[in-house]
Design a protein around this nucleic acid. Structure first.
Lengths: 200, 200
DNA sequence: GTCTATATAAGGATAGAC
DNA sequence: GTCTATCCTTATATAGAC
């Protein structure tokens, strides 16, 4: 796959992203990245000095998309339940574009040598959801639950199918297309679950 | 940590499990496993021939615990909702004992070179849940949802916190003990969610 | 900036003594 | 069965020509 209109640095980052996300940090070879980029190994070091540094660049570029992006949602004049629904919809659609991202991030933060990468994660939305939940609870518009447990549940329900994609595809005899359809349908299913959980 | 009352083979398997689960296949070194077992590298090969073979032994030993074990549950004379509740309780308690297991399994099945390990997964319970769900649906005792999506959701809600444990501990400023308490509380929270989702 | 060639180290696997 | 010493391949990283 030629990327002739990109600068060398862009070619490297794009290739590194593909390889690191597919094979993980330990499983990736600088040679594989060079091949994917259509250049040679030495250039990787010329641009990024080391495998570690290259990895960190890739991580920084992708990290913004591990948590759902939904900054404007809480300014909308709709029910809290519908706001959560919009976040879920945006998140699943984002994961459909980046199916390998969750495993990549979770491996990184679970790697004892890379645990300080946790600090890079944008966890603001998680806290924002919990905060807004309490406001709604005061108004008596949502059931009394544990907001941390709720947020973990939302993320788990959105992320897990992508982590387990190979298992699910094998179990259901599905291909990539069928899996994607399943994820598209999942949006409405999860919106329903959220409504049932939150409605008092 | 000495394990003097174990046979050498047991010592190796125990050490290999610890290292493979912590560092993953690619991140693990035969030397690390030997050190952990208190023996030398050569013995690993004497007993298991290769790193690949050793890994497969560890995988086979642990794989039974990736999916919840709950064979007897469906014979009990209780509501379907309560059966699911028992499965969740058993599963989360199992994960509390094996917090690294989900990432280990998911990495393995997502590894292009180990994708045939998927065949080893005991997915029987997943199908059993879906099957029993349809029976209950006929009786009108549960809401009409998509059972596959539901099963994925249950697993995601149970498993995700353990995958994201380092993030959660950092975010909440919690230590291992506090995290474990959070997971214990999670059992009842998830039982509530299931009840709200399934009750017509 | 980009390449080829090479240094240096790490890691899996084996040989052979005990 | 267990050890030390070593082989051999692979991988990161650098040197130096163009």
């Amino acid at each position: 796959m030629p990327k002739l209109d990109l600068t060398t640095e862009e070619k490297i980052l794009k290739a590194a992203e593909a390889i690191f996300l597919r094979d993980g940090y330990d499983g990736s070879r600088m040679q594989d990245i060079a091949d994917e980029a259509g250049i040679n190994k030495a250039l990787l070091h010329y641009y990024f000095r080391s495998k570690d540094k290259l990895f960190e660049h890739v991580f920084d570029l992708k990290i913004g998309t591990f948590f759902p992006k939904a900054d404007g949602v809480f300014d909308l004049d709709i029910d809290f339940t519908d706001k959560i629904g919009l976040i879920i919809e945006g998140y699943i659609n984002l994961l459909r574009e980046n199916p390998y991202l969750p495993l990549f991030v979770l491996n990184t933060v679970n790697n004892p040598e890379k645990s300080d990468f946790i600090k890079k994660l944008p966890i603001g939305l998680m806290q924002k959801i919990a905060l807004n939940y309490f406001v709604e609870l005061q108004k008596g518009k949502v059931r009394s639950i544990n907001p941390m447990q709720f947020v973990m549940s939302i993320m788990g329900m959105c992320v897990f199918p992508f982590l387990a994609q190979p298992i699910l595809m094998d179990t259901f005899g599905a291909d990539k297309k069928a899996f994607d359809v399943l994820m598209e349908q999942r949006i409405e299913e999860l919106k329903l679950y959220v409504k049932l959980i939150l409605t008092p």
